[in-house]
């Protein structure tokens, strides 16, 4: 979509009104599709991508109020701006439209200048909103973006059981010292793309990226059946992907990347933390600390993946686990059982 052209859906039971509005928006340079009642409109909205809805109120089958209600309750459709175009009588009906989430109201017969201004402003709003959503997705995932939308950006926490995974490239600082800044960022981008894919394909989300390290959550914000198993599988996939990346790097005579993983399972407090302008979905608690300590411990333990007792208990096939000598981690009162893979 260019700045000024949009895909509009015109919903009106009256043929003259449909023709008139289609012509009106087409003269403004937009594309127009038409639906003759709310039911058909909802089907079209679910099947295609529209930037703006021009909605009549009085319609058979499903009227404009019902359409507004249905849009509001549909996470995929609720962001489409709606301009109510109606000659419905009574201010209370117009108020009701606005309360149900309509962005604007234009009385019929529709004034051309008013239509132009309102359509333009709504399309601009939609464009900004889409841009925001794209940004949100770049830093979070579809699930978190959805959760954010559903909870309406509530910055609050809840206690849940989840698996936390930390991973980090060994000695990345010294590797990057011999690389150009461009090559360093390119390598990080490749690495992150592979890691994101491995995490999300196992139902996890990447909640934090710092330099060459990342933190992923399994079981939050959406619960998953076996978060420990998913986290371990994701770690394995990430190892495989790193191995593939290393094969390519070997051909280019570039140094091998070594990655370590720490996984812990247990109670965490998860939620959006930050300010109104900038918040991130994250979690805190002993489980998070433990996962970070386990990841650090891979440097000395000789296993690329280390995990705690609770993660081990969740595994469907614990045969491949090797217990290593219990470790006294900083911040934990007693020695903990640790497993490697």
């Amino acid at each position: 979509m260019s700045d000024s052209n949009g895909n509009l859906l015109i919903v009106d039971d009256n043929k003259v009104n449909r023709l008139l509005l289609s012509r009106g928006v087409e003269l403004l340079g937009h594309r127009a599709a038409v639906a003759e009642n709310g039911k058909i409109a909802m089907e079209m909205l679910r099947a295609g991508a529209y930037d703006l809805l021009l909605l009549d109120i009085e319609m058979p089958e499903m009227d404009g109020f019902e359409v507004l209600e249905a849009l509001k309750n549909d996470a995929d459709l609720r962001d489409i701006p709606v301009i109510v175009t109606s000659s419905v009588e009574g201010l209370d009906n117009i108020v009701r439209c606005i309360e149900l989430g309509a962005d604007d109201y234009i009385p019929k017969p529709v004034n051309k200048v008013l239509l132009k201004a309102r359509v333009h402003s709504c399309l601009e709003k939609k464009r900004l909103h889409d841009e925001q959503k794209r940004l949100l997705r770049r830093f979070t995932t579809v699930e978190v973006a959805r959760d954010l939308q559903d909870s309406g950006f509530a910055i609050g926490g809840r206690r849940i059981t989840a698996s936390v995974l930390f991973c980090d490239i060994r000695d990345f600082t010294s590797i990057s010292e011999n690389m150009t800044p461009e090559a360093t960022i390119e390598l990080l981008n490749t690495y992150y793309t592979l890691m994101f894919e491995a995490v999300t394909s196992h139902g996890g989300i990447v909640s934090l990226m710092v330099g060459d390290g990342l933190m992923a959550l399994f079981g939050a914000p959406q619960p998953i059946e076996n978060s420990a198993q998913s986290a371990i599988l994701a770690a394995h996939e990430m190892l495989n992907m790193t191995a593939m990346l290393n094969e390519e790097r070997a051909v280019m005579e570039e140094p091998e990347l070594k990655v370590g993983f720490g996984i812990a399972t247990g109670k965490v407090v998860a939620g959006y933390a930050g300010t109104d302008d900038r918040a991130t979905y994250t979690c805190v608690g002993k489980t998070v600390n433990l996962a970070a300590r386990l990841e650090a411990h891979t440097k000395v333990a000789g296993h690329p993946i280390l995990f705690d007792q609770e993660t081990m208990e969740g595994l469907l096939d614990p045969d491949g686990c090797t217990p290593i000598p219990p470790v006294q981690f900083k911040g934990f009162s007693e020695k903990l059982q640790v497993f490697g893979m």
């Binding site: 009256n14 009104n17 008139l20 009085e58 000659s87 019929k108 017969p109």
Partner: peptide
């Protein structure tokens, strides 16, 4: 409802 809707449509077009 049908009566109101039909009258509404006629009104709307007549205004046009």
């Amino acid at each position: 409802d049908g009566y109101r809707r039909a009258a509404h449509s006629i009104k709307s077009n007549a205004d046009t």
